[in-house]
Amino acid sequence: MLRFLFWRLLGAAVLILAVSVLAFALVRFLPGGPAQAALGLRASPAEVERLNAALGLDRPVAVQYAEWLGRALRLDFGTSLSGGARAGTPVADLIARGLAVTVPLALLGTAIAVAVGLPLGLAAAARAGRGTDRAVSAAAVVALSLPPFYLGYLLILVFAVRLGWLPSVGYVSPAADPAGFLRIILLPALTIGIINAAPVARTARAAAVEVAAGEPVRLARLAGAPPGVVWFKHVLRGAMVPVVTVVGLQVGFLMGGVIVVENMFALPGLGRQMLIAAEQRDYPTLQAVIVVFAAAFVLVNLLVDLLYAAIDPRIRPEGG
């Protein structure tokens, strides 16, 4: 088991490294160039050259990357090139601040997605072909088609503007006021959660239908097992594997949603940091954020694989 873990971690590390190379190349080779972009179109060639030299951009690419990597391993991602209040801030700080908001938001969103999607999917499977099933399937299609900014817009209209239950803007840090923080991220988390509940519900339904039609369930019914036991013991457990898988696969989709809602609800998470960096052509931050997002994706999938092995004994490596 430990060997399995070791190899998977190694693979994850290699992947993250490859992404960092990609991020590095991206920023260097796209038209605009980092220094040019940071200074704006009106900068003179001389100014660009000076910034290039100052940032060390005139040296061979491989050397630049090696240096960046070396510093990155010590969690030093350089300093932000943004203007205004952020100028000169270590990128690592920006990222840390961003994570403090994004991680709780993403977790809450995922929790809502599973808490809503799993029961709905199972209910649809239990009444397959009838009213509940069709209603759930239709709702799922609509939910999947909702852009996060639109759903957020609608939720703000209803809950913040008309009903006044929840705030639409304003930020308090979780350390200072945990309850207030929760209120702040509830609407954005709901937005993400509702949209991501759709693939969960669909997968749960499909898996449940398949297990319910399978031999173990048929045998259980022939032996006179009560339906509750059949559903929990066989169908639910059987549906868990594909549901866990789809949650892992959807993380990329989820992150897109997180970025959008953070910006629309003005939450200072990683997504907001990234957008500001994009507007300001702040390439060190952009680079670092790509790597962080990719690392998160890879690690979540690794976790999913481990969870997989915990549920399905056939997946476990020998002796596990």
Partner: peptide
């Protein structure tokens, strides 16, 4: 796959 679509596009 490791880089989510929106992240890559924004970058």
């Amino acid at each position: 796959f490791a880089v989510p679509p929106l992240v890559l596009a924004i970058a």
